[in-house]
Amino acid sequence: MTWGLQEVTVSFAGQPALRGVTLGLDPGRISIVVGGDGAGKTTLCRTIVGLESAEAGDVSRPARTCFQPETSGVWSDLTVEENLEFVAGGYHLDPAHARSRIGELLEATNLGPARDRLGRQLSGGMRQKLGVAMAVLSEPDLLVLDEPTTGLDPISRLELWSFIVGSAREGRAILVSTSYIDEAQRGDSVLALDEGHVLASGTVADVLASMPGRLFTSAGRITPGSWHRGHSWRTWSPDGSPLAGATETTPDLADVVTVAALAEEGR
C-alpha cells in the first residue's frame, strides 16, 4: 500500500475507538469504510488526516491530503463561487489557475447554474457536491470524505458518486466513509467496521469470498441466529453443513458483513 493505517489503535478516555485497524490507500483507487454509528468511521477518517493521534500502529499520508467532514464544510453566507474562491485563496493557488480549476469543478458537479447561490440556499446534495469540489480544488493526492452521501436523495447520491469516481480516475487516492452497505460496492476495496473492530476488509470480491461456511435462505427462521432479509430468512452454517428446509444462496456484501458481525458476537 502507498499510504494508510497499519495496525492502528485509537482510544478516547481509555475507550478504544479503533482496534488494530489496517487500511491501504493507493493512487487512483477508492477505499470505502462502512459501518453504523459508533463503528469508528469518523475516527478512522480523522486519524488518517492527522486530526487524531494513534496510540499504537503507523499512519501515513501524502503531504497533499484534503478532508471533507460530515458537515460538508461549506460556508453558508458565501456563494458557491465564493466558497471555492476562498478555499483557492487559502491554498495560495495562482489566480488564473484557480479560475480555470473552479470552472472545471463547477461544470463537473453541475453547480454552474447555482454559482451565485448562498451556501445556506443549497439543497443537501448540492452542498455535499460543493464540499467535495472544495476538497479537490487544490488537487490533493489523497481525498478523505466522511459520510458525504448520508441522507441524500438517490439522484444526488449517484451524481456525487460519479464525481468521486471521476476524481479517482485523475489518479487520486480516495477514502469514503458511509453507513450504506450498497455503496461499498462502488469502491475498489472495502473495510467494514463495528465498534472499532474490522469485520471484513479487502476488494469486494475478496470480502465476498472470505465468508467461511455457507449461507442458506428459507421461508421461516431456522435457528436463533437466523436473520430476516426481504421476505425470507438467512441462516449461516459456519461449517458449511446443509440445513433442512433451506436452500443455499450466494451471499452479497450485506450478508457477508452480517455473518462477520454474528461471528464477532459469538466470540
Partner: peptide, 13 residues
C-alpha cells in the same frame, strides 16, 4: 438509521 447490518436485520425482525 445509523445501525450496522446485523443491528438493522434484528430491528426488521
Amino acid at each position: 438509521s445509523g445501525v450496522g447490518p446485523l443491528g438493522r436485520a434484528r430491528l426488521w425482525e
